[in-house]
C-alpha cells in the first residue's frame, strides 16, 4: 500500500470515528464512545504507517512542509486522545478533539497543500529537525487537549463535570508545557546555535513561541500560586492554545522571518 492510500484510510477512519462519537453524544449513549475510540485507533495505525512510509520514501523527517507537519500534528493529537481519552472520564473529549483532527487532516489533504516530497534544503539537514519539530508538535497536541477541555468547561453545566474538565485541562498542560519548552525552546535554541551561530534571533516564530510559553507560565502561576481555577484558568488555557496555533500557522502566513520553510 502506498502512503496516500494509508493516509486516505486514516482519514476515512477518523471521519467514521467522528460520526460514531457524535452519534454517541446526541443519542446520550456514553458506551458508544468506545466505538469512536476504536475507530480512532484504527485510523491512528494507518496514519502511523503512512508517516513511516513517507519518511522512507522521502528520506527525511516527516515534517518539512505544511502537508507533512499538519499530518504529523493530527497524528500527535490522536495520540493525545488515545492517552487521555480512556482515563479522563470525559466522554465529550473524543468528539470535539476528533473534530479538530478531521479538520487538520482535511486541510492537509486539500489541494492547497503541495504534497510532493522535495529534497531538503541545507538548513533543514540536521537531526535536530527530528527532535525540534516532533517534540514541539507533540506539546502542541497536548495543548489542543487542554483547549478542548477548557472550551467544554466553559459550556459545562454541572459542578462534577466542571471539576473533571478543569483537572483534565491541567493534566494536559502538565504534559504539553514541558514538551513544548523542551522541543520548541530548548531544542530550537540548540539547533539555532548550530545552524546560525546564535541561539536566539528574535525571529517572529521564536518570539511567538516565547509568547505561548509566557501564556502557559501565566496559567500555571495564576492557578498554583493565586488559586485561580475554573473559568479564568480555562480562558488562559484557551488563549495559550490560540497563541500556539498562531505560532504554528499564523507566523508562516502573516509574518516573515527565518522559519520561512516550515
Amino acid at each position: 500500500m502506498t502512503e496516500s492510500t494509508l493516509f486516505t484510510i486514516a482519514f476515512v477512519s477518523y471521519v467514521l470515528a467522528l460520526v460514531v462519537y457524535f452519534s454517541a453524544l446526541f443519542a446520550r449513549r456514553d458506551k458508544w464512545t468506545r466505538g469512536g475510540l476504536i475507530l480512532a485507533v484504527i485510523g491512528f495505525c494507518g496514519h502511523t504507517a503512512a508517516v513511516i512510509l513517507r519518511t522512507i520514501s522521502s528520506g527525511h523527517a516527516p515534517f518539512t512542509n505544511m502537508y507533512e507537519s499538519l499530518s504529523f500534528l493530527s497524528w500527535a493529537i490522536v495520540l493525545a486522545l488515545i492517552i487521555f481519552g480512556r482515563s479522563s472520564r470525559v466522554p465529550r473529549l473524543g468528539p470535539y478533539l476528533m473534530l479538530i483532527v478531521v479538520g487538520l487532516v482535511a486541510l492537509a489533504s486539500s489541494p492547497l497543500m503541495p504534497k510532493g516530497a522535495t529534497p531538503l534544503v541545507p538548513a533543514l539537514q540536521s537531526y535536530w529537525l527530528w527532535l525540534h519539530v516532533s517534540v514541539t508538535l507533540l506539546g502542541e497536541a497536548f495543548f489542543s487537549v487542554a483547549f478542548v477541555a477548557s472550551l467544554l468547561y466553559l459550556a459545562a453545566d454541572s459542578e462534577e463535570k466542571k471539576a473533571r474538565l478543569d483537572a483534565l485541562a491541567y493534566r494536559a498542560v502538565a504534559v504539553g508545557f514541558p514538551l513544548f519548552t523542551l522541543g520548541g525552546l530548548v531544542f530550537g535554541m540548540v539547533w539555532a546555535y548550530r545552524a546560525w551561530g546564535r541561539y536566539w534571533s528574535w525571529d517572529p516564530k521564536e518570539v511567538w513561541s516565547l509568547i505561548t510559553w509566557l501564556v502557559f507560565a501565566l496559567y500555571l502561576h495564576t492557578r498554583i500560586v493565586m488559586g485561580w481555577k475554573g473559568k479564568r484558568s480555562a480562558i488562559i488555557a484557551l488563549v495559550g492554545f490560540l497563541a500556539a496555533l498562531f505560532t504554528y500557522f499564523g507566523v508562516n502566513y502573516l509574518l516573515t522571518g527565518l522559519h520561512s520553510y516550515a
Partner: peptide
C-alpha cells in the same frame, strides 16, 4: 512582556 513581544512581531 507578552503584549510588548507581540508588538515587536
Amino acid at each position: 512582556l507578552t503584549v510588548a513581544s507581540i508588538i515587536g512581531t
